[in-house]
Design a protein around this nucleic acid. Structure first.
Length: 750
DNA sequence: GAGCACTGC
């Protein structure tokens, strides 16, 4: 019996200074050997220079000097103490779980540690009698693009080699959507999770890699769950697509949710059942690394807070009165509305502040905020002033603000939940999880000791807050994930090795959707349409719309590409807050409006934006359009165009064709192929009822069709907030809908 | 009469 020495890290209070390294076989060979750290480090960091490289100019000397300068700092990172033991564990076992708090240096150092290992070199193997090369590279996955890019930049510097695709000396690169920065000589590659999944369509056994490092697993996006499942399948199948050469798997996580990861990989080889104690069951090692975090004092409210917004205001004013400068305040709230309410409250109070206390500079921070407004958060605080940053969850993981010493945690966030019983998404204000509370608190201790005020009682923290936020795969529409699996040859998707298995209803809803769009047959097999959809970087319904436009004879493909691009980034229009703002916007946007609805309005907007060649930013500002999103839309449009050109020989031009009512109809019919189940008809009482569920929906106030009564509407988004809303709405004719539904009926009964 | 956060060859 392998003994379970590992003790669960206390979720509530991180500073677990002890290092626990545990193996199941108890041979004790993980003991760090008496290696001189400095010595082995030098050996590790220095790339054997090729002749070509030696000859190359002063720039490489400069890079080398920079790497030398960075080295002492790297060796002070907590992870360095564990270098030898980490490597020893990986020599013995194929899977290693690393638990490391923020600031341990694991994301930058671990990949570099691995490179000199003999198993990390390229190897020859035989697959089905054919000689193949396996491995030689390390791939590191990240949940976010910025993280992948910044880590690659940092590690390239530490390595002393140029980042990028051009230089033959480059050893570190990254690959994210729209930005591929890898050369044939790349040894360490940082990628987004989605990017690696995409890579796996062409190379399901990841043959170019010796190691995969899956970082930030605790964030538990859908893609990381799929990746872990694919890794487990590789283990179950003895790496036979790699000629038996193992892929070493390093799973890194910031939280102590380690037991389930261990159980996941420790399995019965034949059945894949977790927890079995046999040879295959002892493949997992574990290593915990202490973080580098300053202590943060937690202050709970003695009594529950009724009005959280009022509570935030009071706490901020209190901190400002009692705590000395410097020290900015970061307040975690749960949405734009709440942030703006507190912003006004604090600003009202700030006028009457006593001269003896610091002035307050209130700065909102949320994703929908224009880029320049977001940038204000990073500007230095004027003397005698204290910054108060009012933020959503964006500051929990994605954005780090320097200078924060005080955190106020409302204890709430907004979560999108897909309710499969009704097939709709709702956005709800929920209590945060314990790990989220710890993360928020940690934001006060990045530079020096800090304080965190929690607007909930200590009892509620322990009793009310769940340990972790439910993973995304239990909350989202599974259609895309299922198609992803099917495209990689997973036939029995219900029995895929999930870390958390989604509910049966979620699978069923997704199957219905996939059959409706014709991606799967009645018996669950991939169709030609399904293969096309799986390759497109779009949601299933949007991809279906595009595929039908490719097949359609009415030549509306460029228009459909524009609309699909415009939809795929979410709302491209700015939210209007003030009254005069609104009138101005209505006036400016009027030129873009189309009577047929939001989709053709988006088309006009994308066309007008792309035709604007002098100042697109000014144009966006004038028309109250989100410029940042429009830039993303243009990237997607370019990507989709080139992808389509590859598979159908279609030639795109920048010429804008006029839109007759016939062509408008053709466009909307393409949309019905993807969204035919999202149709509502006008009832005699003037409300709209959905065809499938017979539920009442209202046209979202942001729609150009708000208040209009038409025979039927099709919508591309369905949200439940204060009401049941259809968002992204167009007028459709009864007979168009009839055609689509009849086709579906035919396919599902045949 | 309304907008949590990420992400994709």
């Amino acid at each position: 019996m392998p003994e379970r020495v590992y003790k669960r890290l206390d979720n509530a209070e991180p500073p677990a200074k002890k290092v626990k390294i545990h193996q199941h076989d108890g041979t004790g060979s993980s003991r760090p050997k008496g290696v001189n750290e400095e010595q082995s480090a030098t050996q590790l960091d220095t790339i054997q220079p090729t002749k070509q490289y030696q000859k190359s100019s002063r720039s490489s000397d400069k890079l080398r000097a920079e790497a030398d300068r960075l080295r002492p700092g790297r060796h002070r990172l907590p992870i360095w103490k564990h270098r030898e033991s980490l490597l020893e564990l990986l020599r013995q076992r194929n899977i290693l779980i690393v638990v490391g708090e923020t600031g341990s240096g694991k994301s930058t150092q671990v990949p570099q540690f691995l490179l000199n290992e003999s198993w990390c070199k390229e190897q020859s193997a035989s697959v089905n009698g054919q000689a193949v090369k396996i491995g030689g590279r390390v791939v590191v996955t990240q949940p976010r693009r910025v993280a992948a890019i910044n880590l690659a930049k940092r590690v390239a510097k530490e390595f002393g080699t140029p980042l990028g695709k051009a230089s033959p000396a480059s050893k570190v690169g990254y690959s994210v959507r729209f930005d591929n920065c890898v050369s044939p000589s790349t040894l360490i590659k940082y990628v987004t999770e989605g990017m690696l999944l995409q890579e796996m369509i062409g190379d399901p056994w990841l043959r170019q890699y010796s190691t995969i490092v899956i970082d930030e697993v605790h964030e538990r996006g859908v893609n990381v769950d799929l990746l872990l499942g694919f890794m487990k399948r590789m283990i179950i199948n003895d790496f036979d697509g790699r000629g038996g050469v193992p892929l070493k798997i390093v799973v890194m996580s910031a939280t102590a949710e380690v037991d389930m990861l261990q159980d996941f990989f420790r399995m019965d080889k034949t059945t894949g059942a977790p927890g079995a104690d046999n040879e295959a069951g002892s493949v997992v090692s574990l290593c915990s690394i202490e973080g580098r975090q300053f202590p943060v004092q937690t202050i709970y409210t003695p009594k529950p807070v009724n009005d959280v917004l009022e509570g935030c205001l009071k706490t901020v004013l209190d901190i400002n009165k009692k705590e000395p400068l410097p020290g900015d305040i970061l307040v975690f709230l749960y949405g734009q509305e709440a942030i703006e309410a507190v912003e006004n409250m604090v600003n009202d109070e700030a006028i009457h502040l006593d001269r003896s206390v610091p002035k307050l500079l209130v700065l909102p921070l949320f994703a929908a905020l224009p880029q320049d407004a977001q940038q204000r958060v990073f500007q230095p605080t004027p003397p005698g002033t204290r910054k108060v940053i009012l933020s959503t969850n964006i500051a929990e993981t994605s954005v780090t603000v320097a200078g924060v010493r005080f955190v106020v945690d409302s204890g709430k966030f907004k979560m999108k939940q897909f309710r499969m019983s009704v097939g709709l998404e709702s956005l709800l204000v929920k209590p945060i999880s314990k790990s989220s509370a710890i993360q928020r608190k940690g934001r006060a201790g990045r530079e020096t000791a800090g304080k965190c005020w929690r607007l909930y009682t200590e009892k509620d923290y322990h009793k009310l807050l769940p340990e972790n936020t439910p993973p995304e795969i239990l909350r989202c529409d599974l259609a895309h994930a299922i198609l992803n699996m099917k495209a990689r040859g997973v036939n029995d998707v219900m029995n895929f090795p999930f870390l958390d298995r989604p509910h049966r209803e979620a699978f069923e809803e997704a199957f219905v959707q996939l059959m409706f769009v014709g991606a799967l047959t009645k018996t669950g097999e991939m169709t030609a349409v399904g293969h096309r959809i799986a390759k497109l970087p779009l949601s299933v319904p949007l991809a279906r719309v595009l595929v039908s436009a490719i097949e359609d004879e009415s030549d509306v493909l460029p228009e459909v590409v524009d609309i699909v691009s415009g939809l795929s980034e979410g709302n491209i229009f700015l939210n209007l807050t003030t009254e005069e703002n609104r009138e101005e916007a209505e006036e400016a946007r009027r030129s873009l409006y189309r009577r047929e609805g939001d989709h053709l309005t988006i088309l006009k907007t994308v066309q007008a934006y792309s035709a604007e060649n002098t100042d697109r930013k000014a144009w966006s500002h004038k028309h109250f359009v989100n410029h940042r999103k429009m830039r993303a839309v243009m990237d997607i449009r370019k990507q989709l165009r080139s992808q389509i050109a590859n598979l159908s020989q279609y030639t795109f031009t920048d010429e804008i064709q006029s839109l007759s009512s016939d062509r408008a109809a053709a466009i909307l019919k393409c949309f019905l192929k993807g969204f035919g189940r999202s149709v509502a008809k006008l009832c005699t009482d003037g409300s709209y009822k959905t065809l499938e569920q017979d539920q009442t929906v209202a046209i979202h106030p942001s729609s150009v069709l708000r208040g209009r009564k038409v025979v039927a509407i099709m919508y591309t988004e369905y949200v439940f907030t204060t009401n049941s809303y259809a968002r992204g709405v167009s007028v459709v004719q009864n007979d168009w809908v009839g055609e689509v539904l009849q086709d579906w009926l035919k396919r599902s009964t045949e």
